[in-house]
C-alpha cells in the first residue's frame, strides 16, 4: 500500500466516466422539481378528499395533466438517480449492487409509465 503512488491507488476505484453527467441531470431535475413540487402541493390541496368527478375534472384540464406528467417524469428520474447513488455507496458486493440497480431501474420505469398513462387515461376520459 505505502509503496504505491496516489494515482496508482486511485485508479480503478472510482469512475471518471459518466459521473458528471449523472450529477448534472440530478441537479437539472432537482431545479425543475422546486416549482413543480410547489405546484403539486397546491394541486393536492385543491383536490384533497375530492370525489371522482371533481378529481377527473381537475385532470381533464390540460395544464393540470401536463404539469402532473412533468412532476412525475422529473420526480421519478431524480429519485431513481438519487437512489442509484445511495446504492453505489452502500451495496456490496458488486454483483448484488448490479442486481439492485437493475431492479431499481425496472421498478421506477414501470411505476413512472403507469403513473403517466393513468393521468392521460383520466384526462382523456374526463
Amino acid at each position: 500500500m505505502a509503496m504505491r503512488s496516489a494515482l496508482g491507488r486511485a485508479r480503478g476505484i472510482g469512475s471518471a466516466k459518466d459521473g458528471f453527467h449523472h450529477w448534472w441531470i440530478e441537479r437539472l431535475s432537482a431545479i425543475a422539481l422546486v416549482p413543480l413540487t410547489l405546484w403539486f402541493a397546491s394541486a393536492v390541496i385543491s383536490v384533497a378528499g375530492a370525489d371522482y368527478a371533481t378529481f377527473s375534472a381537475f385532470l381533464a384540464k390540460p395544464w393540470n395533466a401536463g404539469l402532473m406528467i412533468c412532476f412525475i417524469c422529473a420526480g421519478f428520474l431524480h429519485g431513481k438517480m438519487g437512489m442509484e447513488v445511495i446504492v453505489e455507496d452502500y451495496v456490496e458486493p458488486r454483483c448484488v449492487q448490479v442486481a439492485v440497480r437493475i431492479f431499481l431501474n425496472i421498478a421506477v420505469y414501470v411505476l413512472g409509465v403507469i403513473s403517466v398513462v393513468s393521468v392521460l387515461t383520466v384526462a382523456v376520459r374526463g
Binding site: I114, S115, S118, T121
Partner: peptide, 10 residues
Amino acid sequence: LFTYWIASAA
C-alpha cells in the same frame, strides 16, 4: 402511494 392514487383514478 402516489402511483396507487393516480392509477386508482384511471
